[in-house]
Computed example of a mutant assay.
Amino acid sequence: MSATEGEYLHDLRETLRRFVDKEMPRDVVAQWDRENRFPREVFRKLADLGVLGLTVPEEHGGLGRDIVATMAVIEELSKRSLAVAIPYINAACYAGMNIVECGTPEQKASILPRVVSGDMIFAYGWTEPDVGADLASVRTRAQRVGGTITVNGAKRFCTGAEESDYLYTLVRTGPESERHRNLTLLLIPSRHPGVRIERIHALGLHGFSTTDVTFDNVEVGLDAIVGGEQAWNGAWPMIVGPGLDVEKLEVAAMALGVGAAALADAWSYAGERRQFGKTISEYQSIRHKLADMKTQLHAARLVLYHAAGLAQRRLPCSGETSMAKLLATEACKAIALECQTIHGAYGYVKEFDVERCVRDAIGLPIIGGSSAIQRNNIYKWINRS
């Protein structure tokens, strides 16, 4: 990284920290978590900073593709609340990056300026009740008759479907026997006739709904095909390409933010909490816990931003992104639980933010490809090397 790039990232982080302190105070964030509410008014103010344009080319109103800076935004937002960090991902990455990489010129002209302004959010309609990591086995079907596409099926764990403008939906468009050749991506409006969205009440990751989505004879036009008519049955390269690598980094950046927040609170608490005549930070066992967690975070940060740099330069990075996702999310979970232990009984009550960090941290090794999947990816990558 050049000195100029380093200065830019430093200034970007400082801008985001001021934004978080002003627009996302702790008591308000706790209310979002209790109500499981998306603070759209804060999201629109975030758009005013221009950071939603970090995945969008200048010709569409963005700042140009900058994966490293995008990860820095996710990390800084996640230090305070995933209720803003996750919608940022759904807009800048799910909508912005995917349409830049895969959309038609018409789709880019229509969608990308609205991503930059904060008026366009996507939700992924990929996983299904019986389909998780094996996306080539999706059963939601789309049939094409003339200029109309009819969709029937069900999707599960669609983050943000209630708040999104479009469902970025993977559908089966041919025989299941030709798994990878008969898949298509569709842009289905979230409030379209025949679309039913039901909220799932999850332990953490509050503020941006986790949902089930059902499609009952949903009809869309051919312009809903991501990439245009020539991309009918051509979704697989769109899924396994650069977008999937960056998705792993997005979750890793969230984990860095959550882990850093938990550690900062535990560090402060250890310096204030007194037991047996001295602060608990004076006990070697606590100091060692804090030192180990700081080291874990530092290692995860180095791996994440190394992988992000490779992705920015469009170099092969599937192994590195899997390692970043695995290391950061598992470290975050371990750190959050250790920080809760340092807080003692206070770490178990909702008045302390570490309780929310624990609930969020537990979900991060699962979403975006589980830790088991990442270990499989890493093993395969090593064998190919």
Rank of each mutant, 00 (worst) to 15 (best):
A85V: 08
L46C: 11
L46I: 06
V20R: 00
V51H: 03
M120V: 03
V56F: 11
G204F: 07
L112M: 09
D360A: 01
K350G: 11
I121G: 00
P189M: 01
A154I: 09
G194K: 10
D216C: 02
G227F: 07
A307P: 06
A308Q: 12
T341E: 14
T211P: 07
E176A: 15
L135Q: 11
K79R: 15
Q374R: 13
R301W: 09
E250Q: 14
L203Q: 13
A311C: 15
R314W: 05
G96S: 04
V116I: 11
Y348S: 10
K289V: 15
T329D: 09
R34N: 01
I286S: 09
P105F: 08
I335L: 09
A270C: 12
G271R: 11
L185I: 14
R144W: 12
L12Q: 09
Y168L: 13
A299Q: 09
M71Q: 12
M293Q: 04
R375P: 02
R384F: 03
G6E: 12
V84P: 00
S137P: 01
G147F: 11
E330L: 12
K294W: 13
A266N: 02
A3M: 12
S285N: 14
S117I: 12
L9K: 10
A264I: 04
H288G: 02
V29T: 04
D245G: 14
L304I: 13
S318C: 05
Y269T: 10
R156H: 13
H192M: 13
L302E: 14
I74E: 02
V303N: 05
A69S: 14
R375F: 08
T341H: 10
L49N: 08
D265W: 13
Y269H: 14
A83N: 00
